[in-house]
Structure formats: C-alpha cells, structure tokens
Design a protein around this nucleic acid. Structure first.
Lengths: 260, 260
DNA sequence: ATAGCGCAAATTGCATACAATACCCAAATC
DNA sequence: GATTTGGGTATTGTATGCAATTTGCGCTAT
C-alpha cells in the first residue's frame, strides 16, 4: 500500500559495487572526517593511492562519491579539494532538514495512516520513554536512545510515502552534521540530566499525535521546530572548544575568522 | 553580502571535467530521454561503447552521473537499468519542488531584502508582463516566457541565500519533469489564450510582494501553490496521448497498467 | 626588479588489458 | 521430472600505460 523505495536508495547508499570501491570510500571518508586531509587541501589521486594501496580507478570512483556527498569540491582544472564548513552552513543544513522532515510529517498526516501503520512509531515512543525514565545517564542508554531516535526519523519518512522526499533527505543527510542524531552526544555532555532529550521526546509524541489526527499543518510545524533542537544544541557548544570536538565532521569546520 | 555558491553547483552541473565525459553524458542522456534505451532495459557499458565510440572509462563516469540524476538505477549484481516513472512520481517530484521553493520564498522574505536586491525580480515581472500582453501566442514569445520564468525561479533561489537549498533544488530538478518550465509547452498547446501563464504571473507578483513586505509565511504558501500549477498542467494532459508526448522525459513514463 | 614567456614536472583524463564475478544453460543425478 | 551442479560466456571491476592538460618555476628581456 505504501509505495516506496521507488526512487532508489542509491543516494543514501552511494552504491559502491565492489570491494575496492567500498574500501576506498570508507577509508577516504574516514580520513577526511578525521582531519587527515585538512579543508582546503587538494586531494591528489596518486596521494590517496599511496596511502590506501588501492589503484586509481576505484579511488576516482570514491572521490566522485564523496563529491556528491558534499565533502569534496571539484577544481576548475580537474581534481578535488576538501570542503570546509561554517557554522552558518550547519545551521542552513539543519534548517533544510527541518523543512523536509516537516514536509514528511505533513504528508504522513494527510495520508491519515491507520493505527496499525502507526504502531511501530508508538512502539518507539514507548521504548524511548523507558530509556529516558528508567536509566540514569549512561553511555549505553545514550546509544540506545540514538538508535531509537534514528528509527523514529526513519519511520516518519516511511509514513510520508514519498520517494522524492526520501531521496532529498538522504542527500541532505549525507553531511554528517545534518543527521537527526548529530548533536545528541553534545547535548548529553552539556546537560547531564537529559533535559533536551525529554523535550525532543515530547515533540516526537506531538508529531505522532498530529499525524494520527490527520493534522497536517500542525505536524509540519512541529517537525520543523523539532529540527531547531539540533541548532540549539549546536549553539550550546558554540565557542566551547572542548564540546565542538564532538560535532560530527568537526575537522571540516572553519572557525569564523577575518571578522571586521 | 549574500553568501552563496558555497555548496557548489556540482550537483547542478555534474562537473564533468573532460570532453569525452561531457560527450558521453550528453549523448547518453539524450539517448535515454529519447527512448533509445527503454525503461527497464539494462544499459551495458560495452553496448554504450559501441554506440558512442567512447571508451569505457568516461562512459562509466557518465553512467554514475546519470544514476545520481535519477535516470538510472543500479542492479544488485552491478550494472545499470533505466528507471521508469509513474504519474505519481511526477506529482511527488513537483510537490517536493514546491516545498523547497516555498522554503526559498520564506527565507527570502525573512531576510527582508532591500529594494535594490529585489530590482532584478521586478524587472523580470515587468518584462514578463510585456511578453504576455503584447505578443499573441507565438512560439517565439513562448520561448521568451520560458527564459523569463527560469530567471524568476533562479532569482528566487538567489534571494534565499541558502547553499543547501540550492543544492537540494538542483538535485530535485535534475529530473526534467520537475523543472519549473516542464509543462509550459503543454499548457500553451492546451490553452491557446495563455490563461494559465497569466495566473502564474499573478502568483509571481504576489510572491515578490510578500518577500518585499517580509511576509514569510505568505511567501511560502504562495510558492507552494505556484508549483501546483505544474501539476494542474500535467493533469490537463493526462490521458491525452498527443499531449503527453510533450512531457519532458515522456519516454520514461510508464502508463498506469495492471489496475485491479 | 619585474613582467612575460616557455619549458618541465606533476596530475588528471582516457584507453585497454586483465581479473573477478555473476549469469545462464546444459547435463547429470536423485 | 525436478533439482542441483558444473562450466562457459557475458559483463563488470581493477590496474596500469599513455596522452593531454595544467601548474609552477626559472629564465630572459625590458
């Protein structure tokens, strides 16, 4: 009934088809995210060949994939350079994620899903409640929460039943700091009592309620506001270097320099 | 002041860096859109090599680009297959474009651009008025309108000053039937008196007005509604095969078959 | 001293040989 | 007769040599 997957997850999974390509993609992304290739530095194919011990062909493929994911820019004369990101870029990405998830929530609501269809989300809500209330702050509980959070957002997207929305969101979230879980780690460190997580959970509940009632506009604005929580967590970490280290892709961040 | 381009137009221009890749991409896309490779058919590399007289390397690059553009899907065992699209897919793509352009309009309004910044849009509005009122329906006038329409939508995106929005919209519009100009041709054929174009122009005016007044919510809903015009034009053509031929990418359309 | 020109080195783009893998059909066995 | 297994074929994945382009440096001339 819920026709989906039509648009292919090829954007989400960059669909590397062989072992060498997979290895090259994973290792290279890891190297970039860890700062081994600083932003602004040119990434030469032969350089990567030397570091990974893989021949140029699969490495070129991986470079193109990383370009589509947003980590690399192409140079006019050919070749790639590592992108850098400003805080404004992250704000921007989070906002667009909010717009898209808002659209997903609206479409989910307008489809008026049956209780049976909503059951998986309800289950996530309840399981999250247990995690938040039973367990005291622990790394394990946090990881459990992260998994549940991811599941919630995936189920929301499923309910929207929109291949194009799926494709667009996957594209946006290929940037690590645009994912729904991007700042959970930070928020847990800044606020041991998980206050923000409780707020997030309340928002999840409201979104599901709005969807169940078919209240599209409400669902949309709630989902948008929900994305703002990530911005808030980011702003909390702003300026505190010991926290900014936990921002995904922190190595690609350029601190705001050259202010008048 | 309007920081832009940060996110790279690499998604818009798939950034082929050499002549062979460009040729392969353009010719292959042309072949697919013209129906030379019917939907569902596997596109073998050697087959394309035979048809285009270009070696496998640039052809592989072109194939992956076309996959990212949405025309091809990857097969589990490797290789590509031509995608097909349903009317529902087109509706979906148009809706998401509406969502994104709505977000663009809102952000433009919330930035409260100065009259100087809005001048280019005002100029487009006036020039479009001239085209719509002076000229009687002619192919030349229509082409002029198409150019102006494209300019309007590009300027709107510029005003939003959001790299991520730019990237996402480019991604969505890589599918030809998701572009703002996709159905202008059809509408002109179905309704010689350009009624719909007048409506579109009125909507353009309202959007600019809302932006100028800083009315974000109004600008957003207007832009969304504006995208619905494309849907309406598509629905007008629905079922009339002599019109559906003019839908961009018509060769990739699968008519709704196997209904219960 | 500086600007412009030209050559050399480095780097990407292209082509192709070779390897690995998936697919298909046929044959044999249960 | 159905199922499974084997091999052969087709197709994609990988590596690398060669060509073309770009970049940067040094030399020269003004």
């Amino acid at each position: 009934m819920v026709k989906q997957g039509s648009f292919d997850d090829a954007v989400a999974r960059p669909a590397p088809r062989s072992r060498q390509q997979i290895q090259a993609l994973l290792k290279l992304r890891e190297l970039i995210l860890s700062g081994a290739f600083p932003p602004g530095e040119r990434v030469s194919e032969l350089d990567v060949v030397g570091r990974l011990g893989i021949s140029r062909t699969p490495i070129r493929a991986a470079l193109t994939m990383l370009q589509h994911e947003g980590f690399l820019r192409t140079l006019p004369g050919g070749g790639f350079i590592v992108r850098d990101f400003s805080i404004a870029d992250i704000h921007d990405a989070i906002d667009i994620r909010g717009v898209l998830e808002g659209a997903a929530a609206r479409r989910a609501a307008e489809r008026k899903p049956s209780p049976a269809e909503l059951a998986p989300m309800q289950a996530v809500l309840e399981e999250t409640d247990e995690v938040l209330h039973a367990a005291h702050p622990s790394q394990q509980a946090l990881e459990h929460y992260v998994r549940l959070n991811e599941r919630f957002h995936r189920l929301l997207l499923d309910l929207a039943a929109s291949p194009m929305l799926r494709r667009s969101l996957a594209h946006v979230q290929s940037l690590p700091f645009a994912s729904p879980n991007a700042f959970v780690e930070i928020q847990a460190r800044v606020n041991a009592r998980d206050e923000v997580l409780l707020i997030a959970q309340a928002q999840h509940r409201s979104i599901v309620e709005a969807i169940a009632l078919g209240e599209g506009a409400r669902a949309e604005s709630l989902a948008r506001e929900h994305a703002r929580l990530a911005r808030r967590n980011l702003d909390l970490a702003q300026g505190r270097l010991e926290l900014m280290r936990f921002v995904p892709g922190a190595a690609l961040l350029r601190e705001a320099r050259e202010e008048p």
